[in-house]
Amino acid sequence: MVLIAKTLLQNWKIFFIEAGALSEFTGRFFTQGFRPRYEFREFVKQCFLIGYQSLALIALTAFIMGLVLTMQLRPSLVAYGVESQLPAMVGIAIVREIGPVLTALIFAGKIGSSIGAELGSMKVTEQIDAMEVSGTNPFKYLVVTRVFAATLMMPILVMLSICISLFGSYLGVNIRGVTSFHLFWTQIFDFLKFSDIIPAFIKSFFFGFAVGIIGCYKGYYSSKGTEGVGRSANSAVVVASVVVFIIDLIAVQITDVLGLN
């Protein structure tokens, strides 16, 4: 019993230490990120790696998600006799929640682990130290560029994911029924409001930032050799995914308070 209590206490202590270190790391990003010299080329490269190269995976999952969600919702709506509302309901679900959160989770899995592993391996092989010695600011070059790229690419990925997911939904609607393409999009846009799309768009910046900063933090402070690299990558994915949900929770509370729900 005492052992369990000690372990819990230790874990809580580690949690707070990690939270403090992450906050300090985030503060360092804001202090150094907006100051010259800007690593623009590295930023564009990271945008390509983080954004463009994630598109295929996110597009596939989004398409499947739209299709599956539509087919799963259909029986319930048929039972209530409101099958015609299927495009509108799926549209709102995808735009408000499924699109941003699903994209963020896939993004955390792919990019969070990638950044954590990449920076972790650079850390354990002392490449980051070498950069410091050679006069390059490794934080600016490695962290700031990746975090900015993740923050800016995430909303674009979310928009494309929503679009592809709605195409998947259109296919799902037409598997069991017949709805014209024009009517499908008209119904969706008829029900959507700015209060649906703007909060989703804004929170996707936070999702991207969270995935980027946590991946960089886990990798940047990686230790204990190759074992530490794997742990950093894994930890980056888990923490980023949890933080995505926490941000989503906060976002829905804020939109509720602002009367946008």
Partner: peptide
Amino acid sequence: NHFRLGIFVLAGLFFLVLLLYMIGK
């Protein structure tokens, strides 16, 4: 790669603008 990235970013922004325009309309 820059070309692909450009298309990717513009496609995302295009859909965002389209969505906003349709809702606004």
